[in-house]
Nucleic acid binder design. Structure first.
Lengths: 197, 197, 197, 197
DNA sequence: TGCTAATCGAGACGGTACGTCAAGTCTTAAG
DNA sequence: CTTAAGACTTGACGTACCGTCTCGATTAGCA
């Protein structure tokens, strides 16, 4: 994310500044929300000059994306030998992130930003979603190789559909049932279909 | 949407101004995108004072929502006797709306606003989505009664999943294939499933 | 000096703002000096937005020039019947203007701007200096007709020399003696000369 | 001018850097003018780090003064035995420097800078004017000892008046007659006076 | 010959001010 | 009353330089 053309000469970038910027960004995100964040406010809060930020990032989206990425945790890829068990573990993990007021808000913020800001969407996709997709892809590939799902199934499409269902629920479904249950119902449709054939 | 406290006295609101504002907004939406639209630009383009806009709307979202609503048309419910043909007609119609810069902008705006504004989400759902959902519901119910899809299939869920897939694509998928093709692929998975059972 | 393209439409320029800007500029001139004045500081001090200033002026020089011009007063031409008394009145008046921090700042600014800007020099000469020259010219002419100075004396040259001496002192002489005394010493040389002939 | 606390140990100052700084400063002076010169630009043009400049100078004025001083030439002090002949030689020399577009511009630049910048004024006075004043002082002292001018004549004042007249002409007089003629006319007034006594 | 110490270029640092843009409000004359 | 025009205050934008600082890499003279 960060511009890095450094050729070993000159004073090196300050790691304290790096961290102060991310810290301030996260604080402000929680306090005033993405729309109302200003780069000036981040600089002031971080105790850093504006140039120090502009040297690292070119837009607010980049800063926020980097701040979010800095929270990323390792995502263990389940491998129980059974497809549905693997899926349960993954969806439990995802649901647990979303199924809280803060989780919903965060995701809503991301969707809001991404939908009105293609650059942020791409950054978020490659920086944050990639890992999750890879985990899911591996679980699905293993199921495929075990013969549990069809050989020509479009794994990317399946993940897209599932992701879409989750995001749609966060935005448009009132909070009646747990996300987890909703995801399971969706998965069942995806795998068994609804036609009578 | 428009504030209407007019009490019949004084000079009446100018209908030319109304239309010029909506026209200018749609033009600018297509040209520069939602984020980059400024109310000042709308006023200038419409040949209208800023006051004239602020007297009618309180935010950019409102103006844009009104501009978009002004484009709404009636939605015929297909009934060919064959499920896939009906689906084709519906998705063709939806795809045709989305598959243009303005269409994508519009949907993105709606998702953005809805995700950070639950009230708007509900209003949009009942005011704009209801018609489309009813059309789809009727097509699916007829298919069910013809025995083309399973009796206990959750129709609401299917529509949710399909909607989610479309919204997800608009936000996160680069514009490579046509939306129409993408919707068809999604429908196929939804109806046939991917498991080998 | 002020940009004036006003075409009678729209809200008229605020006279309060005009005056607040000039007032703040003069205050800051006296407090921090020309070099250290920032437009931001003028705006803050005047309780006015920066745009309100930029709508009126295009540079710091313009603002300061206008502020100074706003101080211009009428200049009475002395006529005591005695040359040296008249001269005393005129030089007292001039010295009184220069012998203060603001006065020196002002004159220094004018010299600075004029020396790097011939147009400003001419404008200043015709708009501001003319009155003073005319006063001095009249006093000298009367002295000539009374036979106090030589018939073929070059009055313009005398004024030039005196002006030059004052300006030179403002720029290069440290503030040791009062300007008034310095002017008197200069006048004595000018009128009596230094040769032994 | 240059700070020199060097105690023989460590790497000595680079003479190439010294010269590159002066060279770059003179180039930029001619290209963009004093006001628009930035130390960063000098450093870049000279191919030198900013530290290397700040180690030598403490302000832009100092650098520019030093750059100008580096152009200084020797000034021969005339001694013909006749006062007016000596004066002619000195004023010819001065006029010759000023009586060209470049000469006028340079002097205007100096006046402009000096008048809005007392530090520069003092530096310029001691570094550049001193020699010229000394030459003139000597010529006047010799005339005094020969009895050509009065014993109690204030030589410093005479030089101030003459300098002021020249500077005033450069700034405010249109370029009609040659500087040389103007200086001679001024000298005549200074030595013979204008009173009829 | 290796040590010490000041220099070099490069460039990042926290700041200040720049001049521009748009926000939403207010004020005029004209209809 | 509303209208178009254009003023107003506010606040953030991204840029340019300021003068200071930290790097790794040179260069001398002294040991």
């Amino acid at each position: 994310m960060i511009k890095q053309i450094n050729t070993a000469t000159g004073r090196p970038r300050s790691i304290e500044a790096d961290q102060a910027i991310l810290r301030a960004t996260l604080d402000l995100l929680a306090e005033v929300g993405y729309q109302s964040i200003s780069i000036e406010a981040i600089a002031a809060r971080a105790g850093v000059g504006k140039t120090t930020i502009y040297r690292r990032y070119t837009s607010k989206e980049e800063i926020v994306a980097d701040a979010i990425e800095s929270l990323r945790e390792d995502l263990p890829i389940p491998n129980t030998g059974n497809f549905w068990e693997d899926v349960d573990i993954l969806t439990d993990y995802a649901a647990q992130k979303i199924d809280s007021p803060l989780g919903r808000q965060t995701l809503a913020l991301i969707i809001s930003t991404a939908s009105s800001n293609p650059q942020f969407a791409q950054v978020y996709k490659t920086k944050y979603l990639k890992l999750r997709r890879e985990a899911f892809t591996q679980v699905l590939e293993r199921a495929k190789s075990r013969g549990e799902i069809e050989k020509d199934a479009d794994i990317d499409l399946i993940i897209d559909i599932l992701s879409g269902a989750i995001y749609y629920a966060v935005v448009f479904k009132p909070v009646t049932e747990s996300i987890q249950v909703y995801i399971r119902r969706t998965m069942r449709v995806l795998f068994q279909g609804v036609s009578t054939s």
